[in-house]
């Protein structure tokens, strides 16, 4: 499959200014902007990095460049959410979609391991799509856990947090220039393991209509906090209550920007 990706990248490089992908060097693999003349033998797919975020960074820097990105399913979902929020220009981006293997999907509890490229013109899909993996068992059993136990569980987890802000920095859909997590009004600076997890509650609430389930936050967390359990739960809620699935449709606007006339919800409070 990797040779197929390299061939496709070589073919696309003739039309594009550059393609964002992982390059393996003797130090390890890291995101890189491949351009014509680069050795494509160095292009790899693992380990995972948020290439969508890199693509957005480069698009903002090079305003006329037409770029490409080698993207997995989660990267494409992130690109969709970023495009809705003006972080990426879909007209200047060509996606080379790569399907994940079923093992990778299982590891990520990914419901949609194959990128959905219907809305990306000029894009190609490489690899055979595999079916989605079952959701995280903790998320499925969560309703049976009493509140006191939930608090005890998260208290233990959040105590480990040493506020590296890594989950925010790596997140492809976290891009605000003024971040609420840096505001001393909401998150007290200089206080580790605070009694009340302001940081994580705010992060989770901001993830509700954005989280595409790429699990980058969990992989970047030095304290191994199972953050995506929380984000998966809020994501489920958004699907149930508002009927919005982040990363699904590039033309569907984020629900909090819409009125009830444009996107109705079912609630006792709406009459």
């Amino acid at each position: 499959m990797i040779t197929e990706i390299r061939d496709k990248v070589a073919e696309q490089l003739e039309k594009l200014d550059g393609i964002v992908a992982l390059r393996s060097t003797e130090d390890g693999a890291a995101p890189y902007l491949f351009q014509q003349g680069d050795n494509l033998e160095e292009l790899v797919m693992n380990p995972r990095y948020p290439l969508s975020k890199t693509a957005s960074k480069l698009q903002k820097r090079f305003k006329d460049a037409k770029l490409g990105v080698v993207a997995r399913g989660c990267d494409v979902r992130a690109l969709v959410e970023m495009a809705k929020r003006n972080q990426i220009d879909p007209d200047r981006l060509v996606v080379i979609g790569v399907t994940c293997t079923s093992e990778e999907a299982e590891f990520c509890f990914c419901a949609e391991p194959a990128p959905n490229l219907d809305q990306w013109s000029g894009s190609t899909l490489i690899g055979e799509p595999v079916p989605g993996a079952p959701p995280n068992p903790i998320v499925a059993e969560y309703a049976q856990i009493p509140y006191a136990e939930r608090w005890a569980f998260w208290k233990a987890q959040f105590t480990k947090c040493h506020k590296c802000f890594g989950c925010r920095d790596i997140c492809p859909v976290c891009f605000c220039e003024a971040c609420a997590l840096e505001d001393p009004l909401w998150v007290e600076p200089g206080l580790l393991a605070p009694d009340f997890p302001m940081y994580h509650l705010i992060k989770a609430q901001h993830m509700t209509t954005r989280c595409v389930g790429c699990r980058q936050c969990e992989m970047a967390c030095p304290a191994d906090i199972p953050l995506t359990v929380l984000y998966d739960l809020v994501r489920q809620d958004v699907a149930e209550l508002i009927g919005y699935v982040p990363g699904a449709d590039i033309n569907e606007m984020p629900p909090f920007t819409l009125t009830l006339a444009d996107a109705a919800i079912e609630s006792d409070l709406v009459y």
Partner: peptide, 17 residues
């Protein structure tokens, strides 16, 4: 900017602030 080094044996993709 900074990105973690996911395949490095020491930090294994983790970084502090």
């Amino acid at each position: 900017g900074v990105l973690p080094a996911n395949d490095h044996p020491v930090s294994q993709g983790s970084l502090c602030i």
